[in-house]
Amino acid sequence: MATAQAFRRDLHRYPELGWQENRTADVIRRSLSELNIPWRPCANTGTVATLNPHSAGHHIALRGDMDALPIAEQSGKEWHSVVDGCMHACGHDGHSATLMATAHWLKHHENSLAGPVSLIFQPAEEGGHGAREMIADGALEGVDEIFGWHNWPAIPFGKIACPDGIIMSGNGTFRLIVTGRGGHASQPELCRDPILAASAITLNLQQIIARRLPPQRAAVVSVTSIDAPSGATIIPQKAIIGGSIRVPDQATRDQINQLITEISTSTAASYGVQCEVEITPRYHATINHASQAQRLRQCWQADFGTTAIETELPVPIMASEDFSYYLREIPGAFALVGAGEKGEQAYPCHSPHYDFNDNLIPLVTQLYARLVGATLPESSAA
């Protein structure tokens, strides 16, 4: 635990954004080399290491992500980020440290493995499609199934959510460019106000979830910004609306995208302005394969009891994960592991006050060892 904790806190002090994880990759690769575990670069800053590589048995992959977020840290921890405006606000430092703790344990018990085990240290999960690029560079070659996890402060510590089927939503972003006719604030009749139109578009987009989709369908449309810089006496020429969608499937994505376009353009026309719609798909929903999800739950319960499965959390949660790319290629499962404890561990992911709960490292190391059929560590041995 102490070694993995130190490893995690070192990564935390030196966070790196997606596709910039050069120091992180160096630290990981040096550690793997010290353990005499063969590895190869994958998708530039990513790394794939393999234990028991020549076995003909079932090949399992375990994944940990590495990238940080553009957030200024306010946790006050001794190991706080030394990089201005960048921090590990989602716990990817902890995910990488847990995978390294697993590497350490599995290397010392390699002869107990029934088949090859690949350790996937992945860059650029936070919107950078890192999993897609790892797959393109061969990270899943020869792999039969894959498992991953994410710490989740909203779940009580030690419980997990790992349903059969969907666990996290798909997502996308939209950008609406509203162009009117700017002019003097004292002569609104000579202008076509893009701010007024943007405000109406924002309100009208709310009818998509409230009135155009069934209430049973898990979906979100959120306007997250309206940008129309101007002076106090100037009606601007342009306003730009930004937003995000969360969807459970492609059919819902297509329907929402169509409605965003229809509502935005028709509302703009009614205000005498134009609206250009740009919609960018990001990640698909993360959908577990039933057999692998059941096995992950059974492994967790074997160590932590039948009450260790979280049943109160509504799924899918509306956050998204590029682990979905792996699950569209091969069977596997993804779990949300409860990190929530009183006090500091109550902060959600992406908060400037967040810090990963180090007590999760031995628990998930134990889970990973059980999933690959290795000799099991004690919870304090990671």
Rank of each mutant, 00 (worst) to 15 (best):
residue 367 L to F: 09
residue 240 I to C: 00
residue 32 L to T: 14
residue 132 R to N: 01
residue 339 A to H: 03
residue 267 T to C: 08
residue 264 S to P: 05
residue 378 E to M: 10
residue 222 S to E: 04
residue 228 A to C: 01
residue 60 I to R: 04
residue 20 Q to M: 03
residue 257 N to F: 12
residue 368 Y to C: 12
residue 379 S to Y: 13
residue 343 G to C: 13
residue 253 R to W: 15
residue 205 L to S: 04
residue 340 G to F: 05
residue 296 L to K: 05
residue 335 A to C: 05
residue 66 M to V: 11
residue 214 P to T: 08
residue 243 G to P: 01
residue 242 G to N: 06
residue 352 P to V: 13
residue 157 F to K: 00
residue 39 W to I: 13
residue 259 L to E: 15
residue 172 G to W: 03
residue 250 Q to P: 12
residue 86 C to K: 14
residue 15 P to Y: 10
residue 276 E to S: 00
residue 324 S to P: 01
residue 95 H to G: 02
residue 56 A to L: 10
residue 296 L to G: 01
residue 316 P to H: 11
residue 75 S to I: 11
residue 256 I to F: 09
residue 33 S to N: 15
residue 28 I to T: 11
residue 45 T to E: 07
residue 316 P to F: 08
residue 225 S to M: 10
residue 89 A to F: 11
residue 149 W to M: 13
residue 27 V to Q: 14
residue 62 L to P: 04
residue 7 F to I: 12
residue 132 R to W: 00
residue 145 E to C: 06
residue 105 W to G: 10
residue 163 P to T: 00
residue 90 C to I: 09
residue 80 H to G: 12
residue 346 A to P: 03
residue 34 E to M: 14
residue 261 T to E: 07
residue 45 T to S: 07
residue 293 A to S: 03
residue 141 E to W: 04
residue 234 I to D: 12
residue 354 Y to H: 07
residue 172 G to Q: 00
residue 137 D to N: 08
residue 302 A to T: 01
residue 52 N to W: 07
residue 100 M to T: 01
residue 13 R to L: 03
residue 168 M to L: 15
residue 5 Q to F: 12
residue 178 V to G: 00
residue 52 N to C: 11
residue 368 Y to F: 15
residue 344 E to I: 15
residue 380 S to V: 10
residue 187 Q to A: 14
residue 320 S to L: 02
residue 7 F to A: 11
residue 309 I to M: 10
residue 63 R to D: 00
residue 39 W to N: 14
residue 120 I to F: 13
